[in-house]
Design a protein around this nucleic acid. Sequence first.
DNA 1: ATTAGCACTCTAATGAGGGGACTGCTAATT
DNA 2: AATTAGCAGTCCCCTCATTAGAGTGCTAAT
Lengths: 359, 359
Amino acid sequence: MMTAENQNNQLAENKLKPRQRDILKALVQKYVDTAAPVGSETVRRVGNLEVSSATIRNELAALEEAGYVHQPYTSAGRVPTVEGYRYFVEELMERVNLSVPERRMIGHQFHQMRLNLDQWMSLTAAVLAHTARAASLVTPPHAKSAYFKHLELIGINEVMCLMILVLQDGSIHQEMLGMANPIDQETLTQTSRKLNVLLKNCTAEEIQESKDPELTALEGLTRQVLGRVVDIMESIDRDAISKIYRDGLENMFREPEFRDAEKMQQLIEIQQRHNLLEPILASILNSNGIQVIIGGEGPYEEIDNLSLVLSRYGIRDRASGVLGIMGPRRMPYGRAISTVRYVTRLMDDLISNVYGEDD
Amino acid sequence: MMTAENQNNQLAENKLKPRQRDILKALVQKYVDTAAPVGSETVRRVGNLEVSSATIRNELAALEEAGYVHQPYTSAGRVPTVEGYRYFVEELMERVNLSVPERRMIGHQFHQMRLNLDQWMSLTAAVLAHTARAASLVTPPHAKSAYFKHLELIGINEVMCLMILVLQDGSIHQEMLGMANPIDQETLTQTSRKLNVLLKNCTAEEIQESKDPELTALEGLTRQVLGRVVDIMESIDRDAISKIYRDGLENMFREPEFRDAEKMQQLIEIQQRHNLLEPILASILNSNGIQVIIGGEGPYEEIDNLSLVLSRYGIRDRASGVLGIMGPRRMPYGRAISTVRYVTRLMDDLISNVYGEDD
DNA sequence: ATTAGCACTCTAATGAGGGGACTGCTAATT
DNA sequence: AATTAGCAGTCCCCTCATTAGAGTGCTAAT
């Protein structure tokens, strides 16, 4: 993310000499590949550098001094630090694109899909996970404010009815309502028809503050239903991230950094702890472009040794969600970013087809 | 499960002398507690047995001969075999009940809940996982045959509409439909009203085989909608297990048997592989009472070192699902069973309130 | 039938030793 | 001044041997 801190970093970073950049780049690439500390001779080979390993050792010492690499112990090779990854992502990484067959495959899957929100989100998560070979996260499209669209009441038995609420963004909410006394389907239909007229295109706030005598005078079932509608709409307004679709967790367990049981358990707990990820995803909703969050960086200490590549998709404030992937910090960022970029573009297209020329 | 094989087993099992039963019982209890092989002296102490450890050693050798216990290596203690667990569960285990505060807590959570299927299932999974301290599985209630209840079409924009299909069992299915040419909301409402009348209480089969000229003569959007309705209903009929709600996986990772990364990965893969669990859950739908599946037993070789305690809930063929827990084979079966029993009873009550006096 | 006693077995923990990868430094070279 | 060859030194990690300890099976006595 582009913050003030970051700009400071960049000033410092730009002081790196070209050769140091080459060295850092080769080192990160190799380390991402092998997960083992990288020595000077290896850097020379991987980076095709025309200097001796002794020179590279000197430069590595300088890079360590500057905080971009780290030595697990004296006389081991070097490993990138968080700052090293950040520099790599911002300055060194070459843009990669998904191969044509991969793009075709993804496009194909998206076009075959039935347009059911749940399936759609699951599929997106699956595609992301499979293509980036990492864990994926997707949140459903969400509007800044919920607008009432349609209500339906369906009698289930003597004392219960099913309420179905459709909002402008296409989301559907259902709830079973207990009724004080038996009400027949005809009355239920009347009730829903009446509310459909009264509430058309309203927000929760508008409903609550309405002085319309028709609304304020409601009683009985109708009042009960209205109350639930407002509750639901308010909870939607409140929670930008209603649900997180996930997939591909197993990809992470394959990585050597999670070989050890304790690290694995930490990972599982991070997945479970919604209060950790939700604020991050919510913040992405107000951003543009692809955001790379490198674990341990700034406010993200808690997700140490994980990284996220996230992007907002859809139409801001109208129907917009977050998608992206989560992997070990040692992640092929180039591929991750290109995957997220491509899927975001597809989602943007789909969203603008569905929500684009509304009303 | 009570099969012919099992009855054979039982004959064999009943040949165990009372002292052998005491020994096996103490051994299983201790092993479940400590996850370490149990020696003769420990059995004597745990089981309060009035014989010497030498006698117990002799009996243990007999139990090993009979296949109920196993020695990891010469001169180690004993560990229960699958058969040992089975005998324990069928014959030795004492019935335990959840404590009153626990029951109260669970009951409270269920009564506070909004009656939304998704929340309901998630809550049930959470309660099971938390109470049994294991992973939990819950499938939504499902009817043997899907009966049409209600259809709604809501225009989203010029070329798309949202179809909402409600079935007799209260399940809701939604899909976005693309329309060849723009259709206004009035027409959509007409269409849904018409289909609501024609399809009322029909099964997929009845719709397909209907000779009603009103149905067979349909065209355009109405025909398209009808096609999707039938497709959805058929897929419901086909798949007894539409979705599995899970929770508490992290409980399993805490167990020592999954300390090692490889076992953990196996576990993740079992969670992922739907074709493994779904048939098991589907078979539970046709059973009664609580079923204990001990990993590695009979046809369940693939889930080696896992056990399942499952139960059908609800009204058979009308609105019935499966719930239960999954844990390491070394599991406190008594507590697991009592948890599943109690939650099943609560679910039965809820289901009969909602679906009981239908029509 | 039971038990005390004992030799025996096998694991798991500990620590020593050595190979290997890589460094940092020095001194020579360009 | 920058680069490099060379080399001593560092530290990990693997292997191997040793040992303590838990628990067994067997025998002979009760």
